[in-house]
Simulated scan of single mutants.
Amino acid sequence: MLLEAPNWTFDGQALILNGDGRLWTLSLADRSLSEVPLTGVPALNNDHVLAPDGETIFLSADDGHIYRAPLAGGRGTRITDDDGCFHFLHGVSPDGEHLAYVGIEGGDFTRPGRLMTTASDGGAAATVDVGPGHCDGPEYSPDGTWLYLNTESFTMVPGHAQLGRVRPAAVSSSSS
């Protein structure tokens, strides 16, 4: 099985991985691999981010949506709306209240991805303008005031992505 996208648990005792559309924990103490039993979440792609609480994980699924689930396993809940985009998660704000992702309109991978943010408990998404080129990998700065990403918007040569930083867009939660 191909295991991808390792994230350390906050205690440094394990890695969280994707493999075969499922989530796995690799214990470093005994080198055992165990599936994180999730329900209500379709097969996963390799995008996942641990929430700052260390008990929750945000996941991108093959259905194009982002989900939240307990890191120990259990029922996941969908966060993103049916807005015509595929949602590829990359970052969670330090306070755990916002997510940054790349939206691919209509699942058309010939079109550039757009930088998007949303509240981590759902609600309307906001687009962050980073220019016309494809962007990927948005991550919040440790203080949450910036999003760092790679983008082709700052170059005239296709395939030569540059690093950039922008302010996150303001979003509101579905519970407010």
Rank of each mutant, 00 (worst) to 15 (best):
W8R: 04
D121M: 04
G96Y: 05
F58R: 03
V171G: 04
H65G: 12
W146G: 03
T118R: 14
M116Y: 13
A119F: 05
E35P: 07
G133H: 06
V36Q: 00
H160K: 10
L15S: 11
I79D: 10
D121Q: 00
A161K: 06
M116Q: 13
E55R: 07
G133S: 08
D129C: 07
D136Y: 13
F58E: 01
I16L: 08
D143I: 15
A43K: 14
T9Y: 08
C85M: 11
Y140L: 09
A161C: 00
D62N: 14
T56S: 14
L115Y: 05
S93E: 09
H65F: 14
F86M: 06
D108L: 11
A14E: 07
M116P: 00
M1N: 14
G133I: 06
G107R: 00
S32W: 00
F10Y: 13
E4R: 15
L115W: 04
G164Y: 03
P132T: 10
S34M: 08
G21P: 09
V128M: 01
Y148G: 12
L71M: 08
Y67P: 11
R22E: 11
S153L: 05
T145K: 15
D83H: 10
P112A: 05
L50P: 13
A170T: 11
M116I: 02
T80G: 09
H90T: 14
G159T: 07
D136E: 14
D11H: 00
S27I: 02
V49P: 00
P42K: 13
T110V: 07
D20M: 11
H87T: 01
L26T: 07
G76R: 07
G76E: 05
S174M: 06
G123E: 04
D63T: 08
E105C: 00
H98Q: 15
G40K: 02
P158S: 03
G12Q: 11
S175A: 12
L3S: 12
S153P: 06
P52S: 08
N150S: 08
G96A: 03
W8N: 06
V157Y: 00
Y148I: 12
